[in-house]
Design a binder for these strands. Structure first.
Length: 429
DNA sequence: TCTGGGGTCCTAGGACCC
DNA sequence: TCTGGGGTCCTAGGACCC
């Protein structure tokens, strides 16, 4: 294959994603669950965020609160897991390694979806995609589907089609006009990538219900109804690419660490402990991305669900110099938490959002700064080094707390089978 | 009498994605 | 008792600049 020549051709996008990805990761290490319904819960064991087809068939909706479906799950033998992001992240990394063997340009779109530009890499794109699926299944163990198209939007639709129609065997190619004719037209417009509830209602109001009808809309009209986003959509549906493959991730614009509490927080001391722990995590993320924060925001709020009085408060944080220093972030965040705190509420959630970020390499230092930045940076490097070698929570600031009464719930979490020596799977033979 | 044109930056809010 | 977290992009309007 002449990769340089292929790159000059109009792109052919392949979108590959894991089937019920989080559930498939759990099944991989629990083969007994192969035919049983499986769901994975959100943080704090709150809602169902991943379901196998067997679980969907029981009527478990995306986002269903777990306490409402607990009985249903027990009666039907549904295997229920907390989110295990370490495990899912590692499986995702392995899958993307394989994608790079199949295509020179790969865009990691989400933890379980990647776009590949496969133009010119095969005579028969469907066969190529099947080969890719087989290798991922054999080497990583995760079942996938692939959608192919001349634009990302069509590849997305093709992927959905591959999942919907079993006779396609997991691959659908929309560079093939006959395939588009056969499967595309009657798809409800709300299924389209980028059309949510609000846009679907606007389209409905002008009599557009299906993808086929939207495709026939004049682009200028689409712009009137759905701004430039709608205009791009119509072009993409007609095979004119407007969304390029982004192989290099763009610089992050914000970093957030926000969590629901496992148990309501009612004292400022606990709140500051939680906020310090979140600031610690935020600082780790900053350093991993080689970014420093200039401004941010600490917030806390109650839950209206159970009749608790409503309170949403927050306070800005600002740094004299951009920083990625854990202790500087903790100091600012705990002070902001004290400023935002109001007595007498049962807080259910808090977080820190860092909003203005600059690359560490471009930090403008202040004449007034008093910190010894170089020593601080060495300390942070040592901290990260220890935690990377011995596990994330080996070394942490005392204020972030050893006993965390408010800690987010993960009561049904599987082991980190592939990333922790203590949690390796045991095989009996 | 005649009163421009073109641009940036910031913010808030809405919408959407996985 | 129990309802997630972390992102991006677009628009409109105001302030400001030359």
């Amino acid at each position: 294959v002449d990769v340089a020549q292929a790159a000059r051709l109009a792109p052919v996008y392949a979108l590959i994603d894991g089937n019920s990805f989080y559930c498939s990761c759990e099944r991989l290490f629990a083969p007994k669950l192969a035919r049983r319904p499986v769901i994975v819960l959100s943080n704090n064991d709150g809602c169902a965020v991943a379901r196998t087809p067997e679980a969907k068939a029981l009527g478990i909706a995306m986002g269903a609160p777990f306490f409402k479906i607990r009985d249903l799950c027990r009666k039907n033998g549904v295997a229920v897991f907390s989110s295990n992001y370490t495990l899912y992240g590692d499986m995702s990394r392995r899958m993307n390694e394989i994608y790079h063997q199949f295509a020179p340009e790969v865009e990691v779109y989400s933890i379980d979806e990647s776009f590949l530009n496969i133009v010119g890499l095969a005579r028969d794109y469907t066969a190529y995609a099947q080969e890719l699926r087989q290798r991922v299944l054999r080497w990583v163990g995760i079942p996938t589907c692939v959608g192919i198209g001349p634009t990302k939007t069509l590849a997305k639709l093709a992927n959905r089609t591959a999942k919907t129609y079993p006779e396609l065997n997991g691959v659908c190619d929309f560079t093939d006009l006959a395939m588009r004719e056969k499967y595309l037209g009657d798809t409800p417009v709300g299924e389209l990538w980028g059309v949510g509830r609000a846009s679907a209602a606007k389209l409905e109001a002008i009599g557009i219900r299906t993808v086929g009808e939207l495709r026939a809309l004049p682009p200028k009209r689409a712009r009137q109804v759905l701004t430039v986003v709608g205009e791009r959509m119509v072009h993409e549906l007609n095979g004119v690419p407007c969304l390029p493959l982004e192989a290099l991730p763009a610089q992050r614009k914000g970093i957030a660490v926000t969590r629901s509490f496992g148990k309501a927080v009612t004292t400022l001391e606990e709140m500051q402990q939680a906020v310090a722990a979140y600031a610690t995590r935020a600082a780790e993320k900053l350093r991993r991305h080689r970014l420093a924060a200039v401004t941010g925001f600490v917030f806390m709020h109650t839950h209206a669900f159970n009749g608790d009085p409503w309170s949403h408060t927050g306070k800005a944080v600002e740094f004299l110099e951009p920083t990625d220093d854990t202790h500087e972030l903790i100091y600012a965040a705990t002070r902001a938490a004290a400023g935002a705190w109001r007595d007498g509420y049962r807080y259910a959630k808090a977080g820190i959002m860092l909003t203005e970020l600059v690359p560490v390499a471009q930090v403008q230092t202040s004449l007034l700064a008093t910190l010894d930045r170089e020593r601080r940076a060495r300390l942070m490097a040592a901290l990260d080094g220890v935690n990377s070698r011995f596990g994330r929570h080996t070394l942490y600031p005392a204020i972030a707390g050893h006993r965390q009464s408010w800690a987010t719930k993960f009561e049904r979490k599987s082991p980190r089978f592939t990333t922790s020596w203590d949690e390796l799977p045991v095989v009996a033979a």
